[in-house]
Amino acid sequence: MAAVFFYLFSVVLIASAFVVITARNPVHSVLFLILAFCNGAGLFLLQGAEFLAMILIVVYVGAVAVLFLFVVMMLDVDFAELKQGFQKYLPAGAAVGAVVLFELAFVAVNWQSAPTAHEAAAVPILAQVTNTAALGEVLYTKYVIFSQVSALVLLTAMIGAIVLTLRHRPNVKRQNIEEQNSRTAKSVVELKKVPSRAGV
């Protein structure tokens, strides 16, 4: 049964990844990317990695892919122009890709792990502890320094994004709450006595 699902997820994953590249409409590309992510999550589930599966759905489908959709729809990117060199570079790219694929296949066929590798990479028994608990136990103890450094990497990304894109434009109307709250009827409403039949 697991084998059936494995091949189902794998085939759909590869097929949708292919469509991501070839689809003419960029919105279709993003939608197929989401399909690919969902199938990847299915493969993780089959391996018993439920935490990674959920992260893939929540972060990649929920945040990254939706962001892609926003970018595709909001920005006026001319995808036809981006694809212009595609035909020209296809032969060279395909040649490099074929060589790398052959080499990687060679590595995979001749794969050999160190005799101690299985023992060194020991994982907790999955029947006794959930993924989330097992990750939490090492992430905030043994690897706490890495989570702190990752936080600094994210901080850098945030500062970078602000520095490169934020522009303070003059004459932009902003909400000034203090000003709003201090408005009174006396200061903003002017009463005028309009005599009848005379106009202002």
């Binding site: 890495f146 450094v149 990752s150 600094l152 990497v153 850098t156 990304a157 500062i159 970078g160 490169l164």
Partner: peptide
């Protein structure tokens, strides 16, 4: 992690 922290700041 060290490499990415360095590079990310350098890109900016």
């Amino acid at each position: 992690l060290g490499l990415e922290l360095m590079s990310l700041a350098l890109y900016v």
